[in-house]
Nucleic acid binder design. Structure first.
Lengths: 255, 255
DNA sequence: CGTCGCGTTGAACCTCATCAAGACAGGTGG
DNA sequence: CCACCTGTCTTGATGAGGTTCAACGCGACG
């Protein structure tokens, strides 16, 4: 990115291609795929990409920036149902009833590729890899939800926060970024909403992990000092009555 | 069912057709659909339909009986991730990684239709309604999971149990059964596992609702006396600090 | 008739939500 | 430049809801 002129990249030459498109396409298939993206959209921080109840027309792939999805509760409150970063697909929830069941909002200035559903379905009939790719993405969403169900049902506050951090780190790592450093794009309240904790509890758990030397925190900047311990925290679930306290010897961090 | 000889029913004449197949198919399309079901399977209570880690080859539609799906936790315990009754589709979790991520087990003697994935995908290219139908089913699974996430994240024990009962009743009602009476096919422990509560808490909440005259309980037989109150219970979420106590006048049930 | 699985009920404890107060950073206006 | 404000985050004290542990009831089954 030496230049600040951004050419309208085709899928075939997009740096996120391997993350959001099926792999192993033939050249002729790739030509077809390149016609899939009709538009791009830029959104400023806080702007809405799609909203609950609106007709479902397209899927979206995050090019740059971050999004959150929220479900609106009957009483007007909102709960965060997911965070999305570069290369990730937004909007699958809408397929069931041909309308969106959650609202997607940009956490910072962002850009997305727009994929019209009709184009995808038409194209799937010729490019079989695309058909099974979309299925896999949906199924992946289901698996993700199952993991989250497990988290909400069985994990203590500290484990939830640890899992959350590890999850973000893994996804960033897949995109070539550091597996040890991360800058949170969301508030403690949004994290809490996603994990079904209060913002106070999230804050306490982050502070505790910092006190224990597992991570170092400066505002929204998080650095992992002891990945091993972070993983151990994330594995502890609600049935672990006899959690081993972290020993002083494990706390000594070389610097 | 006057006769105890069960003919091998084709999809086109199956009583569950509207529940598990796309509607509005042409006659020629229906002929194709009828070739989809390759086999049927009978399972005795407790038998496994598919298991975590096994290669994913087919989807299954419940013909008779009940199933539960469980995800296995690292420490060997299991958590119930869903219950399935007649007409409902099992196995969608397997698409993402071409292997099953949960285990399906019969809660009672049951029968399923087997749909080979390859057949579905091949057929989808000709019967477009089938393609979008499978998508819708997957998306519906996602929406269901979102509801369950909301339940786990935001609802009190009593509301969870009330929602659970209402959910079963609704699904049974769709199948032409009573909306007021229901026989649970699963143990309190399985319900608790699904709702992320202990079996004791489930038992206490059921007892409480019976004491309050909302339902009548005899073992696993549940009768709804006050649907209105049951709905009200299911709507209460964790943020309802000032729950109105149920008034004595509301408890008087005509008999 | 004893055993086993399942369900109920009670008492003590623990985690996390709630309420409250204050710290800190970034932005705005005087 | 400082004063002020607002949104975000931190930390402490208290209490409620649900888990845990334990005892017991009940029906099915060999």
């Amino acid at each position: 990115m030496q230049s600040h002129f951004t050419p309208k990249t085709a899928c075939s030459s997009c740096r996120l291609r391997d993350i959001c498109m099926p792999t192993g396409l033939s050249a002729s298939e790739m030509v077809l795929i390149d016609q899939l993206i009709s538009t791009r959209l830029k959104l400023k921080r806080g702007e809405v990409l799609y909203q609950t109840g609106r007709p479902f027309k397209s899927l979206y792939v995050v090019r740059t920036g971050w999004f959150k999805t929220t479900v609106s509760l009957s009483d007007g409150r909102e709960q965060v149902s997911g965070f999305y970063m570069g290369g990730e697909l937004l909007g699958l929830d809408g397929i069931a009833q041909d309308q969106h069941t959650c609202t997607a909002r940009a956490l910072e200035d962002s850009e997305v590729c727009v994929l019209h559903v009709q184009a995808i379905n038409t194209l799937s009939r010729d490019v079989h890899a695309l058909q099974s790719h979309v299925q896999k993405l949906m199924s992946r969403e289901i698996v993700h939800d199952h993991n989250h169900l497990f988290l909400l049902g069985n994990m203590r506050a500290e484990s939830r926060v640890a899992s959350f951090l590890l999850n973000l780190l893994t996804r960033l790592h897949l995109r070539g970024q550091s597996a040890a450093e991360l800058s949170l794009r969301m508030t403690r309240e949004e994290i809490g909403s996603y994990l079904s904790l209060t913002l106070e509890t999230v804050s306490r758990m982050v502070s505790k992990m910092a006190r224990d030397g597992v991570i170092a925190v400066d505002q929204r900047q998080v650095r992992v000092l002891r990945p091993d311990l972070l993983h151990r925290l994330a594995e502890h679930d609600a049935s672990d009555r006899c959690q081993q306290p972290i020993l002083p010897s494990q706390l000594l961090v070389a610097h």
